[in-house]
Amino acid sequence: MTQAPLRRLIDLPGLDALEMKALMKPSVADPDNRDDYPEIAEAAKACFGLTPEEAEAVALPDDWDSIERLDGFDLTDAFEAEGWDVTDSKRKPLRMIRHWALPLALAMRGVAGELPFAPEPGPDEAGDDWGSKMAAEATRFRKR
């Protein structure tokens, strides 16, 4: 059985542009500067159905594990275990992850907000090598 591919946080609408902005201007990634960049709240609302401020106001369940407070690779590993890739192309945690961690965690666990629609992976995306199987079957058919 193959594992479903991870959903990439950076692929959600608007997050890649903000990640690039944080690369050019590191203060964008600092949660203390969130009020200076309204596009952060807009992107979070569009992706998760709630802003970072709304996420902070949500009453967390008693068994909440505070996944959003982890650092570095502990954070990326925890999200990966839940089906999300929160790294960049170099496999480093996203610069903007402090803004997205809590809204994403709340939405993926069904506590508050919602996750954007993701279509079911097709045969080639599922990692079961469907194309190669079809080519082999075609070759066997032609030999008959």
Results as ranks from 00 to 15, higher is better:
10 I>N: 05
11 D>E: 10
15 L>M: 13
20 M>Q: 13
21 K>L: 14
23 L>Y: 15
23 L>F: 14
23 L>H: 12
24 M>G: 15
26 P>D: 03
27 S>G: 00
28 V>D: 01
32 D>R: 14
33 N>F: 12
34 R>H: 01
36 D>M: 11
37 Y>P: 04
38 P>I: 00
40 I>V: 05
41 A>W: 06
42 E>A: 14
42 E>R: 04
43 A>Q: 03
44 A>V: 00
44 A>H: 06
45 K>D: 10
45 K>Y: 10
45 K>N: 10
50 L>N: 12
51 T>S: 12
53 E>D: 12
55 A>H: 05
57 A>Y: 13
57 A>L: 15
60 L>C: 01
60 L>I: 01
62 D>H: 13
62 D>K: 15
64 W>D: 15
66 S>A: 15
66 S>M: 03
67 I>V: 09
68 E>Y: 02
69 R>Q: 07
70 L>I: 02
71 D>I: 04
71 D>S: 04
75 L>G: 04
77 D>S: 11
81 A>D: 15
82 E>N: 07
83 G>C: 05
83 G>T: 07
84 W>M: 04
88 D>Y: 09
91 R>T: 11
94 L>P: 07
94 L>S: 00
98 R>F: 06
99 H>E: 06
99 H>Q: 02
102 L>V: 08
102 L>E: 10
102 L>P: 10
103 P>G: 09
104 L>V: 12
109 R>D: 03
110 G>P: 03
112 A>V: 12
112 A>G: 10
113 G>C: 10
113 G>K: 11
119 P>G: 03
119 P>D: 03
122 G>E: 03
123 P>Q: 09
123 P>N: 12
123 P>L: 12
124 D>C: 00
124 D>E: 14
126 A>R: 13
126 A>F: 00
126 A>K: 10
129 D>K: 05
132 S>H: 01
134 M>Y: 05
135 A>E: 13
